[in-house]
């Protein structure tokens, strides 16, 4: 019983992290039909900048995290303009290649600046320890992760369902041709979405540093993990990403608890089965 609870709480927390990091990737990939392998780099940047601000500048956790996320958002805009724009029109192969190149440069830049060692992010006092729920105790950090995840989901739901930007965004994902005919400025929408996705990835990277430790090779190490969430969820689907992140998060956690000797094999087999049955992903369009 206790084990199942642990699996569920840790799995849900891991799923929330996966969702925060991957959702922007899913939407941008659905929007521009661009394969982006460098997205994990934004999560790494968020974590690395927070680590740097806290350890070297002595800034507390919360302002460090906020500054790091803002910095990532600000950086992502020119990156999108300069590096990504030219590859939208290219095939999938050059996109894979270019974004692998971008990943390499991010890794090299971070290790040049901060070294190739682990970059711990010390938790503030309020997030340490555990909370007693009466029937059992939970690590406080997990609760924070879940709460932040829920806020992000709520925010995204509000953004896509209730705002003009969201309506345009959905139109652009579902019918790119029609949307631009209707005078919707798809390239502006993409810039904004890209920046938002990068910011969320940074948030996920910071919140998830306990589970996915930050170092220079982070974008390469977890590249497949994030892309799996996108592919299994279905390109461009926020709900799909959420379902995929939760399912994969819980499955992976369960496998780690129950069959630690099998490593990540369950994760990949699950992905093969799901994509074998539904090549377009859980909620993707055929």
């Amino acid at each position: 019983m206790n084990l199942i609870l642990s699996i569920i709480t840790d799995g849900v927390a891991f799923g929330m992290i996966l969702f925060m990091i991957s959702v922007g990737l899913s939407v941008t990939m659905g929007l521009m039909r661009v394969v982006n392998l460098a997205h994990g780099g934004f999560a790494m940047l968020g974590g690395a900048l927070t680590h740097w601000a806290m350890m070297q500048m002595g800034i507390p956790f919360l302002p460090s995290a906020v500054l790091a996320i803002l910095a990532v958002v600000v950086l992502s805009v020119p990156m999108e303009r300069v590096l990504y724009r030219p590859i939208y029109k290219m095939g999938e192969l050059p996109q894979v290649l270019a974004t692998i190149g971008i990943t390499f440069i991010m890794i090299a830049a971070i290790s040049f600046w901060l070294g190739a060692t682990l970059m711990p992010i010390p938790l503030p006092a309020v997030m340490q320890g555990s909370v007693d729920l009466g029937f059992r105790t939970l690590p406080t950090q997990r609760i924070y992760v879940v709460v932040v995840g829920l806020i992000v989901i709520g925010g995204l739901f509000f953004l896509t369902e209730r705002t003009r930007f969201g309506i345009r965004l959905r139109a652009a994902v579902d019918h790119p041709g029609t949307a631009s005919c209707l005078g919707i400025d798809t390239s502006r929408i993409f810039s904004l979405t890209f920046a938002l996705g990068a910011g969320l990835a940074a948030l996920g990277g910071i919140m998830g540093a306990e589970l996915l430790p930050i170092d220079a090779y982070y974008p390469l190490r977890y590249m497949v993990l994030f892309l799996t969430v996108v592919a299994v969820g279905g390109l461009g689907s926020i709900t799909g990403s959420f379902l995929a992140a939760m399912a994969l998060g819980i499955l992976d956690t369960a496998a780690r608890y129950q069959f630690p000797e099998f490593g990540t094999i369950f994760f990949y087999v699950a992905m093969i089965v799901i994509l074998g049955l539904r090549p377009q992903g859980l909620l993707g369009k055929a």
Binding site: V35, E92, A231, T264, Y268, Q280, G281
Partner: peptide, 19 residues
């Protein structure tokens, strides 16, 4: 399969073999 799905599945097959 094609596109992203094919890329992901081919990666997964190699990972399964490694495991």
């Amino acid at each position: 399969t094609h596109g992203l799905t094919l890329l992901m599945l081919t990666i997964a097959v190699a990972e399964v073999f490694q495991e």
